[in-house]
Design a protein around this nucleic acid. Structure first.
Length: 423
RNA sequence: GUGGGUGUAGCUCAGCUGGCAGAGCACUGGGUUGUGGCCCCAGCGGUCGUGGGUUCAAAUCCCAUCACUCACCCCA
């Protein structure tokens, strides 16, 4: 019986891990320069943590969560996103007592039971940033800039930042009602999906790709007409900050986020290279969530980066550079093999990547092995040479080789490798 | 959940007017007793996704099923 990984769950193989390390290193360095600290929360939470924050009517909660009952009947859920858990931890540990503004980041797997396709998996990874305790809009700019700079520093271009304001609970509910009424009148002309959307999440109708729905929506009440004065000023200030930072963006009044807890600022960073899954990062303000989960009435903003999507873009650009061994040791004969083993280990302890063959083969085979591994140098040592205190050091690229005295051979090798490395 | 596409060697794929299961790459050995890449020769490797049907004969035609994949919905 041969087993495969379950649908939508992926192995990350050694050949693709380099980009993961690169992204990991890059985002941590950048986020810490912004004063963010890492937080790790459990993968499993009580179901209510997610159902209450994300919203009962959202797709995530209504059909995508991996939930299970433990042996005592408690319903637990594998996290479908990070924000709810982070906010739960923020409240549980009273982090606001230590510092009124908490800047937290996290990285790890999320789980949603969707149909997998390009750029979408059932287990996927997110880089997450949350800034809790400041109402903005300067903190909005900070968060958005951090997201934009991340993609800049890892060398991705051609990305588009979309921003929108969803309004606060007060002005949004007015707008929602107006829109609902409007859509009700036009209901017969809407597509099936939009008829459903007009009930569950009317803002989503703005996102429909069909011409008929688009026409209807173009005359519909729009967010800017309804947004209250505070929300408008907030949004305008944010745009001034972005202009000041030379961060280009497009105002997208149709940008709607799928989670209920978003308020005011919403943003998304999009690419054209991933098929239908064009969002590689998305986020926004969630001023009511901390309170909703039982904490103080603290505002917050955050975003998530879809790691697999970013990795896919990095692979497209072939930014991955493969590392190769510094040295391959080819030993011929038992005495040489025994002696070489100690040298190999000593070099490895000093951080030099040394390869050798595990089976005793002829020199030709070992040279071939060294070549296939991409070894930069080969140390050739046979019993005969060893007896007279010599070994051959060969540079694979230049095909030059010279003899090394076996006294002080480790220092000699280190010296040669160091010089090669500098070139 | 709905629709399209694809399943043949470790990988990429050809073979699909039914007639012995193939190529390139990779791997192993040899051409060179102790010198890699290029070249040449040989070798290893396959329940043709699975089950059933039609047929003298099925990788090929039909049905079912599973997996992968893309798209819808929705999201990172």
């Amino acid at each position: 019986m041969e087993f495969n990984a379950i649908k939508g769950f992926k192995d990350i193989l050694p050949e693709e891990i380099t980009n993961w390390h690169y992204l990991d290193f890059s985002f941590r360095r950048l986020f810490e320069a912004f004063g963010f600290h890492e937080i790790k929360t459990p993968l499993l939470e009580k179901n209510e943590v997610f159902s209450r924050s994300i919203g009962q009517d959202t797709d995530i909660v209504s059909k995508e969560m991996y939930s299970l009952k433990d042996s005592r009947g408690q319903v637990l859920t594998l996290r479908p996103e990070a924000t709810a858990s982070v906010v739960r931890a923020y409240i549980q540990h009273r982090l606001y007592e230590k510092n009124p503004v908490q800047k937290l980041y996290s990285f790890g797997p999320m789980f949603r039971r969707e149909r997998p396709q390009k750029g979408r998996f059932r287990q996927f990874h997110q880089i997450n940033a949350e800034l809790i305790g400041d109402p903005g809009p300067k903190s909005d700019a900070d968060i958005i800039a951090m997201a934009v700079f991340l993609f800049e520093t890892i060398g991705l271009s051609g990305l588009v930042l979309n921003i929108n304001s969803l309004g606060c609970p007060v002005c949004r509910s007015g707008f929602r009602d107006e829109l609902k009424d409007y859509l009700k009148q036009k209901k017969i002309s809407l597509c099936d999906d939009c008829q459903r959307r007009s009930e569950t999440n009317p803002l989503r109708v703005f996102d429909c790709k069909l011409d008929e729905c688009r026409n209807i929506v173009s005359d519909a009440p729009s967010i800017p007409d309804f947004i209250c004065r505070d929300c408008r000023e907030h949004f305008e200030s944010l745009q001034r900050y972005l202009n000041c930072l030379n961060i280009s963006y497009i105002l997208n009044h149709r940008l709607v986020r799928g989670l209920d807890y978003y308020t005011r600022t919403a943003f998304e960073i999009q690419t054209e290279h991933l098929g239908a899954q064009n969002a590689i990062a998305g986020g926004g303000r969630y001023d009511g969530l901390v309170n909703l989960l039982g904490g103080p009435d603290h505002p917050a903003i955050g975003f998530a980066v879809g790691v697999e999507r970013v990795i896919a873009l990095l692979e497209e650009k072939q930014l991955m550079e493969t590392k190769t061994p510094d040295l391959f040791v080819a030993a011929l004969g038992e005495a040489a093999e025994t002696q070489s083993l100690n040298w190999i280990m000593a070099l490895r302890k000093s951080g030099i990547w040394v390869e050798t063959d595990y089976s005793l083969k002829g020199l030709k085979a070992q040279m071939k092995r060294a070549d296939r591994l991409g070894a930069k140098n080969v140390l050739i040592m046979g019993d005969d040479e060893l007896a007279i205190g010599r070994a051959v050091f060969r540079n694979m690229a230049t095909r030059e080789q010279h003899e090394l005295n076996t006294e002080n051979i480790l220092d000699n090798i280190r010296k040669v490798l160091k010089n090669n490395g500098k070139q």
